[in-house]
Design a binder for these strands. Structure first.
Length: 646
RNA sequence: GCCGGUGUAGCUCAGCGGCAGAGCAGCGCAUUCGUAAUGCGCAGGCCAUGGGUUCAAGUCCCAUCGCCGGCUCCA
């Protein structure tokens, strides 16, 4: 849409609309024109349009032929137009009410929009409601949004007059552009590529959600702006549903469930250092034993290396130069030591203990390693981001030609693990960071190898520029929390550097010494983070194999205590994590409590069950399942556990 | 680390210059009950910490710490 034809206002253009054929109309006709013709629901619901591949306004004249398609809220791009317009309306409201406020940027994002402002004095959360009301007024005014293009010079003058220094920076960055696109609604003008709704009145429901700080251009050396987050929907009901979903998601928050289910805790005495409670550690140990079982099968050997190692080791590994600000240090006998932030140097020392033949490769050394990293205080987040965590690490020593099959093998392992829990995940390829070791060729080779595997396997991935480890590029696996925030879990890092730093060798078929290649990889990532994600994923209702308490026996009266104890003993002796509730409470009360604790099975035993040597099974999800002979129940439960049924 | 908010009983919260409260949980007693809350009673607090203002401070101000939402950073 940039390359509009010169002086074509008389010429006709040919617009094709799916299901309606092509028609010739005068150049300068708008998408809205066709909509008015079509009418009906689409007319009401269309928010923007697409001419071939260009997303455009409904109300901006068309100057070229093409295929026209209408975008509603159901299309991502339609929703973005709606929310982007909402962000402009918010900015307009803010500019009307506050003096000397400068505009940053205000894009549409997943589920909403934000706008960054530089205020004279900080905004308080109460003011959001006032701004929201002001927005309603602007919506009522039904101001048309006008798109216009001006020259760079004009744009500079325009935003300079308005005191918009941040916008001037943005314009300066649009170096290659002759003309600059702006949108105007009433007295408000913004630098913007669009598209937008035809008028502010087309916005129906807007809601401002929260207030946050954000560095200008995401750079911590730049000024901090105030960001207002909000959302917009075409229907009030959709907003209500969204807010309800948000509230439901908050109930799944692992920090809340962790406390309610007595899984773990944090204390002021050690911010960022998690404490596992008895129930929490059950979940973790189950995950670990599953991990050990699978890793043995996949050809890994387990090792364990010390938590504290001397400074010289970390100098050699490169951590001293590249990772120091994240490390903790201590002194022993007047000498400097570091608490390990990664497990690799320890494994390197094990590798170096003897000679290695190419025949031993790939050598896979796995380690459940506890690492400590100094994370900035503001980044700590429950179990998701902590300062000490256990990585389910492994280092694979191998021949260069084993890279691709090994990377592939790890990817398969990750897939197997995540599928057991029913996790959906996405993959990113992280490339060379600014702070890194090794030659550009090494990085290129390693990055290409990883990309190759991803492409050969047909895995969708996005490239995460500059986010690799300091010693090599990586493939990252990301999982979503209950609020849709994503967290990196699994990672596969390719490393040509550590073998050099540690002078690692193997003897090849030629009898000569060669340099091995290393993969650093984790599957869960960090046990802490993975457990946090599991809690949110299951909303605290762990599948039977992970449940801290698997079965609770609930006698109805004292008369059945003896039999209930017998049932409990049988379960317990068969390795089932069972509890017995002999308190003098009504069944309803005991069941409620067990439900709240999300215990998978409740066994109600009264006179009937006692006499028939049965148990009345109640499932957490399905409710009363009726009576069953104890041995049958036991068998079913054992099967469910060993199948790791979800 | 930065910006904003916030911190009262184990949990959820009320109190916002004038004697520290409620519900749930806990404990005791009674109750012996059939699938999501039995009744009565009793306890429980350096109102995050340290300063300040005031005749008087959970309450107002400042600082520190923790936590929450973001930003930056990362498993």
């Amino acid at each position: 849409m940039e390359e509009r034809l010169i002086d074509d206002s008389i010429a006709n253009i040919k617009i094709e609309i799916q299901g309606r054929g092509a028609q010739e109309v005068p150049s300068g006709t708008t998408a809205q024109h066709f909509l008015d013709d079509i009418g009906g629901r689409l007319k009401k619901e269309a928010l923007a349009a697409k001419l071939d591949e260009d997303v455009i306004d409904l109300h901006t004249p068309l100057y070229r032929s093409g295929k026209l398609q209408f975008l509603t809220f159901e299309n991502n791009e339609g929703a973005e137009a709606l929310r982007h317009t909402a962000s402009h309306v918010m900015a307009q409201a803010v500019k009307r009410r506050y003096e000397n406020v400068k505009l940053g940027i205000g894009p549409a994002i997943k589920d909403g929009f934000y706008y960054d402002f530089d205020f004279d004095k900080p905004l308080s959360p109460e003011e959001l409601e006032i701004i929201e009301n002001d927005m309603q007024a602007i919506i009522k005014e039904d101001l048309p949004l006008e798109r216009f293009e001006i020259s760079r010079e004009e744009a500079q003058k325009l935003f300079e007059e308005r005191g918009e220094s941040y916008k001037l920076e943005l314009i300066a960055d649009l170096e290659d552009r002759e003309t600059i696109t702006c949108y105007r609604q009433g007295e408000f003008i913004d630098l913007c590529a669009g598209p937008h709704l035809p008028s502010t009145g087309r916005l129906k429901t807007v809601k401002l959600l929260n207030l946050a700080g954000a560095y200008w251009r995401g750079d911590e050396n730049q000024p901090m702006l105030q960001r207002i987050y909000g959302t917009a929907f075409p229907k009030k009901k959709m907003l209500e549903e969204y807010l309800y979903r948000l509230e439901e998601a908050r109930k799944r928050d692992h920090r809340k469930l962790g406390r309610e289910l007595d899984l773990f805790s944090f204390h002021d005495e050690g911010p960022g250092f998690p404490f596992y409670h008895p129930k929490g550690i059950v979940v973790r140990r189950e995950l670990e034993s599953f991990w050990r079982e699978k890793h043995r099968k996949y050809g890994y050997q387990e090792v364990e290396t010390p938590i504290i190692l001397n400074k010289e080791l970390w100098e050699k590994s490169g951590h001293w130069d590249h990772y120091q600000e994240n490390m903790y240090f201590t002194r022993i006998d007047e000498r400097d030591y570091a608490i390990k932030p990664m497990n690799c140097p320890g494994s390197m020392l094990i590798y170096k203990m003897g000679m290695h033949s190419y025949r031993d490769f790939p050598l896979r050394l796995a380690e459940m390693g506890l690492v400590h990293r100094h994370e900035k205080s503001g980044t700590l987040h429950g179990l998701m981001r902590v300062r000490s965590f256990t990585q389910d690490d492994a280092h694979i020593f191998m021949l260069p030609e084993q890279i691709e099959p090994e990377v592939e093998g790890v990817m398969e392992l990750v897939d197997i693990f995540y599928n057991v829990f029913g996790f959906k995940y996405h993959v990113e390829l992280s490339t060379k960071p600014s702070k890194s070791m090794g030659t550009p060729e090494m990085w290129e080779k390693a990055t290409a190898a990883l990309q190759n595997v991803l492409e050969n396997k047909g895995v969708e991935f996005k490239i995460n520029e500059g986010d690799g480890a300091f010693y090599g590029p990586k493939i990252d696996f990301h999982l979503e929390d209950s609020l849709g925030r994503t967290w990196q879990c699994g990672t596969i890092q390719l490393d040509f550097q550590m073998p050099v730093n540690f002078d690692l060798t193997y003897v090849g078929a030629d009898g000569q010494k060669h340099r091995p290649v290393i993969i650093h990889r984790v599957v869960y990532g960090a046990m802490e983070r993975f457990i946090a994600l599991l809690i949110e994923h299951y909303a605290g209702a762990f599948p039977l194999w992970l449940a801290p308490i698997q079965v609770i026996v609930i006698p109805i009266t004292d008369k059945q205590h003896h039999y209930a104890l017998e049932v409990y003993d049988v379960l317990n002796h068969h390795g089932i994590r069972a509890e017995l509730d002999t308190r003098s409470e009504k069944v309803g009360y005991k069941i409620r409590e067990a439900q709240v604790q999300k215990i998978p099975y409740m066994l109600v035993v009264g006179d009937r069950e006692m006499n028939a040597h049965e148990v009345a099974v109640r499932s957490r999800e399905k409710g009363d399942l009726g009576p069953l002979p104890l041995d049958i129940f036991l068998k079913q439960v054992q099967e469910e556990i060993s199948d790791k049924k979800r």
